[in-house]
Nucleic acid binder design. Structure first.
Lengths: 137, 137
DNA sequence: CTGCATCCAATATGATACTG
DNA sequence: CAGTATCATATTGGATGCAG
């Protein structure tokens, strides 16, 4: 990390702050609304089938789950194994890389959860000061 | 973590997989496209002014940066100090809580970056196998 | 059951103009 | 400089219907 404070993109010659940084897309797959929850679910659930995942990730639609799973599979974080049975059965699970990433993701999630009381307090203060009670769900 | 594998929301009686879990919103502020980059920039840059941040976070619009900053300030992760000078000067920096969260966020980001070669390889294989070269930027 | 295609609604984002 | 307001657009998300 040099004094410009911008090179944190490892071997690449541009950083995550740049729209051209390739890690930015992956990061979004991982941290996005459904990506993070899907990884979280797989970390806790081990190997899960499509509809098991769907039930675990509250509110996700078929379409979004499918899309999320494809993105994560493409990035090499999730493996998909379809069995040629009838009815069809498809199992999803984290790859070793997916587990490593999931580990750090969970560390982040758990920290945030543990600090929610502080966050909630901060929000109250903010909303009160700004006279905007219903702001931002 | 009980056998249901669902309660990871600490003191609350519902989990992050639920749309009602309060941490979910904060998590999205933190991991969202602009939230994560803004926190990253502040972690590296220390105290920054609005337009300094704007320059560091490539591609962010005035509107999005403003919105992101408000959300993070509301959650108590960023502090905003306006100086009554002319021209106006407003400094943003991470609060202690923001720094803790930023630390774990960066740990995640750096892991992903370090593994990008693997991700890129996985993507090539996937795209080749699915005959869809231009899929997903 | 797994999942893709399609159509429509909701939201997020961006460009621009304007104010203190 | 530091934002806010507004409008146009892009992207996301959801419901439904259909296929293997």
């Amino acid at each position: 990390m040099d004094s410009t404070g911008q090179q944190i993109c490892g071997d690449f010659d541009f950083d995550v702050f740049s729209r051209l940084c390739p890690s930015r897309g992956t990061l979004e797959d991982v941290t996005g609304r459904w990506g993070s929850l899907t990884i979280g679910a797989l970390r806790e659930g081990g190997t899960l089938r499509f509809n098991e995942l769907r039930r675990r990730v509250d509110g996700v639609s078929e379409k979004m789950l499918s899309q999320t799973l494809h993105a994560l599979e493409r990035d090499g974080l999730v493996s998909r194994q379809a069995q040629p049975t009838n009815p069809p059965r498809v199992d999803y699970e984290l790859t070793p890389l997916g587990q490593e990433i999931g580990e750090r993701l969970l560390a982040l999630i758990e920290l945030v959860e543990g600090r929610m009381p502080e966050v909630l307090t901060a929000r109250s203060r903010y909303d009160e000061k700004h006279g905007d009670p219903g702001a931002r769900a």
